[in-house]
């Protein structure tokens, strides 16, 4: 029988994928969310975690960027 699962397909670059795997392992989002690893650029995750995941990604991007312009205050 064919296995059927509902969820969300995520396409990203390998670096981001590693980050998602890390989040999954360390349960940073409260629970495991990766249903299956598909290949270097794709993951299949559960649908309801999407909002929290995007917030976490935004946090990460904020951490690794630094202000480019001097505001002058």
């Amino acid at each position: 029988m064919v296995n059927v699962m509902k969820g969300v397909l995520v396409k990203c670059d390998p670096a981001m994928k590693q980050f998602l795997l890390h989040l999954d392992e360390t349960l940073k989002l409260g629970r495991k969310f990766i249903i299956q690893e598909l290949d270097e650029h794709h993951l299949f995750i559960s649908a309801d975690i999407l909002v929290t995941l995007q917030a976490k990604i935004d946090d990460l991007m904020d951490q690794i960027s630094f202000p480019l312009a001097e505001k002058g205050n």
């Binding site: 064919v2 059927v4 509902k6 396409k11 990203c12 981001m16």
Partner: peptide
């Protein structure tokens, strides 16, 4: 370029709601 990069930054992940089919019994299926 920087404005475009900031936009791309938000698109590092793209989502597609879908259904996963796996573990087929045969290649033909």
């Amino acid at each position: 370029d920087q404005i475009k990069l900031w936009e791309l930054e938000r698109n590092r992940l793209t989502y597609n709601e879908g259904v996963l089919y796996s573990q087929f019994l045969s290649q033909a299926d």
